[in-house]
Write a protein that binds this DNA or RNA. Structure first.
Length: 639
RNA sequence: GGUUCCGUAGCUCAGCUGGAUAGAGCAAUAGCCUUCUAAGCUAUGGGUCGUGGGUUCGAAUCCCGCCGGAAUCACCA
């Protein structure tokens, strides 16, 4: 039994014996003592006054005396206001340190054959353009989450559903056919995903021109727009105004409607979009030429993605492609239709009526029988369920899709998937620039490859300036630059509560000092350096230490933090938040650096003390490494 | 308009199952390398926790109203 449960049990006994009342152990309010107070654990006595019928200080005093007698680990106590602060004996902490030292996987729960299987879907890119900062957050969160879940004793399957079909990729394909002049990644020296992305942009530019060209002719149909020159600008103005307090008058509202109609018409009748749709139809009909082009360009993109994933350090156990799953989804929906879970409208489209769940109706199959986003997710779910004995499914997808997953959960449940009802949508916030959302149109999208390359460059410059890696070979040094660069980026993203939107300022590069990945990595390297220094002097880190060694406050504080690490891992697992671990390791590293500055370690003359400090250092290093592992961040031995 | 989420130092973020004097980093200022890595450490300044009520012995934390911001409500994905 851990010390926390022991204290709670002791409080329960005390209340029983002193006041004759029975309380539940879970109701005991036990917390870690504030840093500026003396003590390790604090019992909040306010809730117990009802039992004791005495004032807070007196109650705390009585409880303290009881607990001190009851538990040998409790050395002393102090009552301040309504708080009973308990101090544990040094031998308690030293015993704990010895236990930490013998546990290679300290803080992690073992994964066994009997462990539940959790499937985690993340990344899930479209194949029409390269990955950007938003994808980076998704990938880092997904990968880290898979490790956090694993550290909590679950089997994990990391999966990726690649959105490889649809109108978006047809746009890139069409633009390549028209303006590509046979360019390939090889002929241009460009990464495949970037090349395909360039044609997606090209399509968009040409498409915009066509829309603009169509508007004037169609505008004449609407009397309300006779005085309007620029329909798009007018719509924008009206839309802004409708959101403002002023609102729109009737004439303006009509005008806005007509603007929308004109623009919709232009969007739907531009020759390029018609051609792209035609291409999609050909693809669905397996037209050989279109299919070949589709395969070729997707392959370019995959080759590009592979490089990005590798640099980022993420991977997958199983990849699904929507081109394989969408028709399965269609069959599932039709099956559900037969069972009466869904209904068909007169125009042949298929819908789910979710009004009993407090939601709207949701389209599952278009009137022409083709599938929509939802249909594909249903099909993917079916294949996954066939492939793996899934106990829990986690989708790492942005919070813009909250509604989608609410619906998906209900629909899967109706289709009989056991885990449908409690699938987890790990809903994370957007990455925003100081000016707001990233917009490809305005060229403000932060490209993943570019960002990582810049980080490595900064890391290289900084390391060279500091001259810390002298004596390393070029390759060894380059490896460390990458570890630090990626550590900075990953920590920057992961330390933020995943549910919240976060701001990234591309003008201010990511820091390497302060509350950052490199700070933590540096602390780890510092520990390794200490151990090397000790070895140079013929001093080994002991396997365990004598529980009678004297300790100072800094040392005790570090041991408290080590003791808390398993709770942090468990907490992060239960609320799906790598950020909790990130913030914990930062605090630990900060605490360690203070200790390092105050206390000699290798140079400590008292042998027993030196041994204890070395063991403490080594295990702080171990916990940092374990924690960083759950974030997917490597730690260097030197930096 | 309905639903959901967010608002903490100049900036980026912790703290939120109610608990003691609200914390870090960055930025600013002043110190610390002839002993273990200065990507470090120490010190100073910086706050009506959006706002107004309520519940409570106790509210940044829970409830309600308001203000401000975001997302979503497609035969798009």
């Amino acid at each position: 039994m851990g010390i926390e449960s022991q204290i709670k049990a002791s409080v329960v006994k005390a209340v029983q014996e002193l006041y004759g009342e029975t309380i539940a152990a879970e109701s005991v309010q036990l917390q870690i003592t504030r840093k500026d107070m003396k003590g390790d654990f604090t019992v909040v006595v306010f809730p117990l006054l009802r039992m004791s019928k005495k004032n807070p200080v007196q109650t705390g005093q009585e409880l303290g005396e009881y607990i001190k007698k009851d538990l040998s680990s409790v050395a002393e106590f102090e009552v301040i206001k309504g708080f009973l602060n308990l101090s544990l004996s040094h031998s308690h902490w030293l015993t704990l340190l010895n236990n930490v030292a013998t546990d290679e996987q300290y803080g992690f729960k073992p994964v066994t054959d009997a462990s539940p299987l959790v499937m985690i879907e993340y990344s899930s890119p479209n194949t029409n353009k390269p990955l950007h900062l938003g994808h980076i957050r998704n990938n880092l969160l997904g990968f880290s989450l898979s490790r956090v879940v694993q550290a909590n004793g679950n089997k994990v399957v990391k999966t990726n559903i690649v959105n490889d079909r649809g109108i978006h990729i047809c746009k890139s394909m069409l633009a390549w056919q028209k303006w590509g002049e046979g360019q390939t990644p090889e002929s241009t020296g460009k990464k495949g995903d970037h090349l395909v992305g360039d044609f997606y942009v090209k399509f968009d530019q040409e498409y915009k021109k066509e829309i603009a060209a169509l508007i004037p002719g169609h505008k004449a149909t609407y009397a309300s727009l006779a005085q309007v020159d620029d329909v798009e600008a007018t719509l924008k103005q009206l839309a802004e105004k409708s959101k403002s307090k002023e609102g729109l008058n009737d004439a303006e509202a009509d005008q806005m409607e007509d603007c929308k109609k004109v623009i919709d018409f232009a969007k739907n009748n531009a020759p390029l979009i018609i051609e792209a749709r035609e291409m999609l139809r050909k693809w669905e009909a397996r037209d050989p030429e279109v299919f070949k082009l589709w395969e070729t360009m997707n392959q370019w993109v995959y080759n590009g993605f592979d490089v990005t994933y590798k640099t980022m350090g993420v991977d997958f156990d199983k990849i699904y492609y929507e081109s394989d799953t969408f028709s399965v989804g269609r069959d599932m929906v039709l099956g559900g239709l037969e069972k009466g879970a869904f209904y068909r409208r007169d125009d042949q489209s298929v819908w789910a009526d979710l009004s009993t769940n407090g939601l709207d109706e949701k389209l599952l199959l278009r009137s022409d029988g083709t599938s929509v986003y939802m249909t594909q997710d249903i099909g993917t779910a079916k294949l996954r369920f066939d492939d793996y004995p899934i106990n829990k499914m986690v989708y790492v997808v942005g919070n813009e899709q909250n509604y989608h997953f609410q619906v998906l959960s209900i629909v899967l449940d109706r289709l009989g998937f056991e885990w449908g009802k409690d699938l987890v949508h790990f809903s994370y916030g957007m990455v925003e620039l100081p000016e707001g959302k990233m917009k490809s149109r305005e060229g403000t999208v932060v490209d993943a490859d570019d960002l990582m390359e810049e980080m490595v460059n900064t890391s290289r410059e900084m390391s060279k300036e500091l001259g810390k890696l002298d004596g390393y070979s070029e390759e060894e040094a380059e490896q460390v630059y990458r570890i630090i660069a990626l550590g900075a980026l990953k920590y920057f993203i992961l330390k933020v509560d995943p549910r919240k939107n976060m701001t990234f300022n591309p003008k201010e590069s990511i820091d390497f000092n302060g509350n950052t990945g490199p700070f933590i990595q540096y602390t780890y390297a510092r520990v390794q350096s200490l151990i090397r220094k000790a070895a140079d002097k013929g001093i080994e880190v002991p396997a365990s230490v004598n529980a009678q060694v004297e300790m100072n406050e800094k040392e005790v504080q570090l041991m408290r933090m080590l003791a808390n690490f398993p709770n942090v891992i468990a907490e992060a697992g239960s609320v799906y938040s790598p950020a909790i671990i990130a913030n914990f390791i930062y605090d630990l590293a900060k605490e360690f650096n203070q200790f390092y500055h105050e206390c000699p370690i290798v140079f400590e003359e008292d042998q027993a003390k030196r041994a204890m400090r070395l063991l403490l250092c080594q295990n702080v290093g171990k916990v940092i490494k374990q924690g960083m592992w759950t974030l997917g961040i490597d730690v260097p031995n030197r930096m």
